[in-house]
Design a protein around this nucleic acid. Structure first.
Lengths: 108, 108
DNA sequence: CATATAAGTTAACTTTAGTTTACTTTTATA
DNA sequence: TATAAAAGTAAACTAAAGTTAACTTATATG
């Protein structure tokens, strides 16, 4: 279980980044920006997150640069810690074929 | 650039899996199920995808088992090929502070 | 403008994800 | 029920992600 982030005592200097428009189509860059924005908005430093999750600073920086050569597990740990998540989008989906009861093989 | 999947000539045996309810909260397992469902729905085999994307079959199987010890890049390649994507969800987000013009530091 | 703290970089090293090949198991259907 | 194709597994090897530690650069604020 991961501990929830806690606002540190006082007076730390953390630059806040603007949140990207997450209604736009997904891209690794946009995800990276959302992560940085969320982290800085919560007044957490890279080292704060690094220590809380036991992930090295260079790896966190890769994540926040949108580098996709990172382990999915590490990305998900960071996202969960910051209160970010995914929803899955299908280009052409009839949500749940069990609700309609028909067409079970043609939803895509 | 990745080629779009093309339905093969005829007669291949591919079991179709049911699509998970992607309106539920994200989990790696759910993502894995969505990927398998999409692939089988498109009548593609693991080897079809493997060859199209130059990703080994064992890696694809890890992805479809929800194993998070995979490279983000590989997961994204597979998703794009199958017409799946993410949208980013924040637990407490005021979408784009530039639209409101205020409160640029308190959106999280 | 001096200082402290955060961000970012680099290089040597360690760990592990990914590949290849071959094999076993499962599943559809002729 | 035999068979062919797909799915899944395993092991040895290769490639690359991740770590550590030390350093440089950027940025607030006293």
């Amino acid at each position: 279980m991961i501990n929830k982030p806690v606002k540190k005592a006082l007076g730390r200097v953390v630059k806040s980044t603007e949140m990207p428009d997450i209604t736009k189509n997904f891209s690794p860059k946009q995800l990276a920006e959302a992560i940085t924005a969320k982290r800085t908005g919560m007044k957490l430093t890279l080292v704060d997150v690094s220590e809380a999750l036991s992930i090295s600073k260079p790896t966190l920086i890769k994540i926040e640069k949108g580098d996709t050569s990172v382990k999915l597990a590490n990305l998900l740990k960071v996202m969960e810690y910051l209160g970010l998540s995914f929803s899955i989008v299908s280009d052409d989906l009839i949500p749940n074929s069990t609700t309609t009861g028909v067409n079970d093989d043609e939803w895509y």
